[in-house]
Structures are given as C-alpha cells and as structure tokens.
Design a protein around this nucleic acid. Sequence first.
DNA 1: TTGAAATTGATAACCCATTTCAACTAAACG
DNA 2: CGTTTAGTTGAAATGGGTTATCAATTTCAA
Lengths: 147, 147
Amino acid sequence: MGRRVSKHPKEMALLKEHLGKHQLKYTRQRELILDAFLKQEHITAEELYHQLSRKDPHLGLATIYRTLNLFCEAGLAQARHFGSQTQYDNVSHKGHHDHLICTECGKIVEFENCDIERLQEEVAARNGFVIKTHRLELYGLCPRCQH
Amino acid sequence: MGRRVSKHPKEMALLKEHLGKHQLKYTRQRELILDAFLKQEHITAEELYHQLSRKDPHLGLATIYRTLNLFCEAGLAQARHFGSQTQYDNVSHKGHHDHLICTECGKIVEFENCDIERLQEEVAARNGFVIKTHRLELYGLCPRCQH
DNA sequence: TTGAAATTGATAACCCATTTCAACTAAACG
DNA sequence: CGTTTAGTTGAAATGGGTTATCAATTTCAA
C-alpha cells in the first residue's frame, strides 16, 4: 500500500528545500501535518488538530499552528482571516481562488478569474509594488436569499 | 465656530435613520465617535480610543467597539481584519476603494479600478449573486522594501 | 555514536474583542 | 415639566484564537 511514500512529492520537496535553507529539521510531525493539510482546499488550525488527534504521535495544537505558519513561509499555504479565525489555504492544490460570500446564509462560492488577476498586476505595477498574494471577497446575496 | 453643527450632515442623517429604524438612541458618545471616525480613511478601535481619550466624556474602549460595529451595520463603515487587528474603513469618505498593502512595512496605498469592478459584477452574475460590497487587497512589497 | 541545535507538547501568557452589570440617559408619555 | 421605560455607558471580567515558555525529546552532521 506504499504507506511510506508521500502522496505529494512536489510539495514535500518544496518543504524540504525551505527547511534546508533555514537550518530547520524534517520531523515526523511536519510530514503528518503536510499530508493532512494538502488534502484540503482550506482549513483552520483547530480543524486540522481534530483531524489529526487520533494519529500515532499526538500532535499538540501549538505544533499545528507553528507548522501552518511554517508552510506559509515556505509558500505552501496562505493565511486568510475569516470571521474570528484564520483559514490556511492550500496554495498548491489549484492555484489561488477568490470568494463569493452570501451575507445572509454564509454560503461560499469559490472562483478564479484571470482577467481580474491581470488587472491587479497592472495596478500594482503602476504603484511600484510587487504582488506576492491577494485576497478578493465579494459580499452579497446568493440566488436563494434574494427572496 | 459652529461647534454644534456636524461637519458630516449626510452621514449623520444616515446614522440617525438607522438608529430610528432599530429603536436605538442618539447619544453624545455616538456623535463624538462618528465625527472622529469620519475624519479618517481607516482606523482601528484602539487608535480611535487614544484619539478620543482626552475628550469631554471619557469614552470606554467597549463603547468604541460597540459603536464601530454599529457603523458597520448602518453601512457607514466596513470592518477588515489586518494582521491581528480589525481596521474599520470609512465607506462614505470617497466611495469604495481597495488596498495595496506592503507586507514588510505596512504601507497602504488606496486605489480604484473600474475594470476590476466590472469583472467582479460579471463573476457574481454568472453565479446568480447580487453584490452588496467587496474587498480587494493586494499584498506585496512596496518600492522602498524591494531592496 | 555523540553532541549541538532544533522541535515538541503542555500550559501559561497574550491580545483583541465581546459580555456583564449596575449606574446613567435619552426620549416617549402623562 | 416629572415620571417611566428601555437603551447606553464604562469598568472590569470574560472569551476565544494564537503565540511564548521551557524541560524533555529528537534530528542530523561530524
């Protein structure tokens, strides 16, 4: 069943590269958290903590937070404040995606739009900025909530 | 010196309309906070608290938070999580504006882009949504922080 | 294998924001 | 005008998410 072979070789390599460059170590916890994290579109530290709570080495919540922040620094994840919590988005899964949010029922639809991304680059360039990430959220009413 | 005449009659009217509709009262604190808030492009509760700490009736921090949230409900402000704090944007000041934010020094540049807004409407329409507001933030490095 | 340096996990500490509650006011009513 | 009623205030306690602390453990280069 290949239980020792990572299902995410590309991301694993990225992480190891980052670790190497910063004198950080490759640990069993980091591998476990990476594998679990990459299965999601986006997740909170708390959710990941519960998902992994039955695993072999019991992972502390602090380790989850530390590791997710590490992933952000390594470019594998992207933090996004949503409500009172922080969502960690899986960057490598399918590129960047934005959100369409219903203010009535909370429904969230994800979307991507290259044209918007291109215009964003233009705006940034015009102001001398180099964009690393962005966040676009559209708030309104979903079809069901328009009465 | 016209000290009893509000410098923001339009927003004041909007607030009073909201208060009336919800059986809320018009208080000296709310007037003070509104006047101070409208002078800013965006501000945190803490900053506003310090700005107003010398005023006649000493305003509690809890009141600042409550009132800023009230402004959000009345459509005068818009909350935005930035770093660990919440920024309250002045919506009425000059229409909607988006942000270009330097992740290194925190510098914020505001911009508007009609083309992006139009594309947003298209995306929303395609998903059956009716947009009420939106939020677009571009994170990156400002000219000075690119070394 | 050994030793230096990083990591972990439990928990305490932090910080921003909200809730609580008794005293206080706005404003509707008599 | 007073009275009354219901919303508001401020100080302090509380809450929830995230980070810091630190002794024990683990990684990895030599």
